[in-house]
Amino acid sequence: MKALCYNGVGDLRTEQVPDPTILNPKDAILRVILSSVCGSDLHLLNGYVPTMREGDIIGHEFMGEVVETGSGVKKLKKGDRVVVCSILGCGECQYCQDTQWALCDNSNPHAWIPEKVYGDLPAGIFGYSHAFGGYAGSHADYIRVPYADLGCFVIPEGLPDEAAVFASDALPTGFMAADLADIQPGNVVAIWGYGGVGQMAIQRAFLLGASRVIAIDREPDRLRMAKDISGAEVLDFSKVDVQEALREMTGGRGPDRCIDCVGMEAVSEGLVRREKARDGAARWRVSIRLTSRRV
């Protein structure tokens, strides 16, 4: 099959690799239908994530069709159209039982790497370095999905592939960001970045009862979508001083909740300002200092 392989910083290549096979009873093999590019793929590409190796297949936000199941897979069957969670959970450990799937302590075969570096271990993630398990990613024709009954969700009839794929990563990321912000009915919420995650955070903020959501970006198309589709007020950070504008829009008090949905590589002078400190050293001040609570 064909797969997009990491070959070093800034060097991705489409290569011919062997097809994946069932390695454990609870595995399934999927034909990948859609695999989207996440901002986190840029971290790999730009060399911010250690323990990547030449030849690693990247990609972790995807949906596809089940083509093979292991003997331990009970709920899925061949032909099912499913969207798959980026992060792997075994469903049996204490963390999974507490619904803290991202902390699963069984799904990372290289747990000893992050344990040495961070003192604890995260769950395995598709296509996201060997510290996160070293699993082959979804930018490929086929992918092996461990613990398939738990990570694969059958997509209802009538829901297009393009809509379902975001349930893999962008939707839960934005959704959870808004949840963690503890939004109360009537709150004014400011959201930095109107990418996939920002869009989902806006929807969740409104569902939680936010009276107003202010989306901050600089791309004209995104700002238009934020206004027309998400129903948010917008700020173009390349044209206004965000702090001043936010205070002006909120009667001087600033937003109640602030959510950062900006990818690491997207940070620019619109979001951080360079200032001269008293000692003369240049310092960067992040505009979201204004926040009363941030995620």
Partner: peptide, 30 residues
């Protein structure tokens, strides 16, 4: 807990040495 031991041994990669070798290992960590 899960009835299996989690592994990536034998999964595909773009590493030519592993593709040609009969003994498949997915990484130097494996």
């Amino acid at each position: 807990e899960t009835g299996e031991i989690t592994t990536i041994k034998g999964q595909p990669s773009g590493r030519k040495s592993e593709q040609q070798s009969d003994k498949k290992s997915s990484s130097n960590y494996a």
